[in-house]
Design a protein around this nucleic acid. Sequence first.
DNA 1: TGTACATCAGTGAACGCGCGTTCACTGATGTAC
DNA 2: TGTACATCAGTGAACGCGCGTTCACTGATGTAC
Lengths: 219, 219
Amino acid sequence: MQLASSGQNVLMRGNHGTIGTPLPGDGTRVRNRWGQGERLRAEILAAAGQLLGELGTVDGLTLRGVARRAGIAPASIYTQFADRGALIDALLAYEHERVADLMRQAGAEEDPANGIRSQLYAFCRYSLANPGHYRLMFGPDGGQRTSMLRTLVERLSAALTACESEGARLRLPADRAAIVLLVGTHGRVAISHAQPEAGAEERVLRFVDELVGLVFDAP
Amino acid sequence: MQLASSGQNVLMRGNHGTIGTPLPGDGTRVRNRWGQGERLRAEILAAAGQLLGELGTVDGLTLRGVARRAGIAPASIYTQFADRGALIDALLAYEHERVADLMRQAGAEEDPANGIRSQLYAFCRYSLANPGHYRLMFGPDGGQRTSMLRTLVERLSAALTACESEGARLRLPADRAAIVLLVGTHGRVAISHAQPEAGAEERVLRFVDELVGLVFDAP
DNA sequence: TGTACATCAGTGAACGCGCGTTCACTGATGTAC
DNA sequence: TGTACATCAGTGAACGCGCGTTCACTGATGTAC
């Protein structure tokens, strides 16, 4: 696809004339030591992650672009990944792990009621900071094989049940409330991605507060 | 971009070997009459709309594919549109109009309280039936110039205020309630797109019911 | 210690592809006289 | 009525591009003896 003057061109998403321009500071790469060839794998994934963050979409994430960013030859990617699909799958798996960890940490250190808000906050912060990764996971065709969102819903549902057993009252069954919370948050984040806004984080977190307030019975 | 064996290939979204295969029944096209050249414009938009529906994303919607589907030469598109971007903009404008009309119709024929549910239902039905168009409008970079969603929120907010003046009680200010409703619905639809499910419409409408129930004070 | 060889990390150049876009054109349909 | 010409709808072939992928290779680092 050509880099034409069309504002809608697939490849013009970022603000870069050429995709995968080496970052300043990248001089000439030093080849890895004997037996450490798989280090290249991590370097490639890191480069792909950077580019995905800049592009905002997995379309337009090209092997040649990743190679440029990593400072290697396009052919070198094939020493670590079978093809483009395998690289993207690896990226997906890595980010899955990361967001689940962030939410786990956020939810662990508080009492159940605050834990819910904290988990949702963590989810929002990750999503706002990483639109490309977020869409890869939850966007169209992204999570088709891993039911990531289902896992998150189940964990949140358990946390809500814990709240109930501590005396809080919900206006929906715990599992439905969990869906409302996550789906609503997901929608808010998606909108913020679609139409970038000033003070996005603050606004999104406020929305989450309102959502949580709706789900619990008023004091 | 090559049609390779990668499952993640940008161009492999649909179930078509080649994008824009002429639909069965498309024989040889008859050229428009004198003075009716702009008819081609509608044919091109129709073909683009079909393809967008099948592909689910605007990436991969190529001029060559549209030309194939419309049964014309790629160069002919340039008699009606300046470039690919202009074609996509025209598609966007057309669908904007369409979804707004659907919601207007749905909301008009009932009392305010039911009108809200009906508007949201209409929004859901359109969105579920047209994922590609929906994403073009509300997805990343889609509505960057037109604040479509804002318009919808304002209209819904007005309807909610009407409900209040008829005695209904909201648990949030009308404008915030409108946001919760539309954003939540948006999120639910996006998830249904990401992970197609059996009985999607029924589930999504149920979610909308719950959302509406949360926003109004219990009877 | 030296030397022949194996193994490793990574590459340069080429392939065929579909893309957006351009440009000189074709042939049918209208108008002037 | 006929004929020359203008205007219209639409095209065929070519352009240069970036892409994913392949394949024979290079040169550094290790091992065997």
